[in-house]
Amino acid sequence: MAVEGIITTFFSGNVLGAVGAAIAIAIAGVSSARGLEIAGNTAAGATGENEENFSSALILQALPQTQVIYAFIIGILIILGIMGGNMTPEKGFLSLMAGIAVGITGISAVSQGKVASSSIGATAKNASVKGKVLIFVVMPEIAALFGFVTAIMLLITGQVF
């Protein structure tokens, strides 16, 4: 009886959903932070040498934040689903998968941080490329974008919110 109780508790829709939301924001959050760290170090170095680099470095550095924003949205949507009250185990499982999808693709933020770092350096060397390198930095986000779309589709299909 006790074991059944534990299983029902741990595998209830709410719990599964919560785990999904937590995984999403946790993994994406740490990845974004690492990406921002790498880009931020370069931004600091470049700005230290020449203050004019500040504004373009700032914008380039902020780009790896997208992944945590996507994870945050998915997290909120899952939480709204939980707050709505009818989170069946099936919906909970879909939410968990959505969380994993957007969380793990969020690791692309680390790579994006490295590209952002190189782009900040390129802009420091040659200020006229600051618009063009933006395109390079945005490329790794495509992976996170697909993760985000997949997560949203999962949540919509399951009518989570």
Partner: peptide
């Protein structure tokens, strides 16, 4: 075409930032 879909979804950050 993929870009347009991605770009549109990118605007979702408006919601996210307002929620934060």
């Amino acid at each position: 075409l993929i870009g347009i879909v991605g770009s549109t979804l990118s605007y979702a950050r408006l919601l996210a930032m307002s929620l934060t």
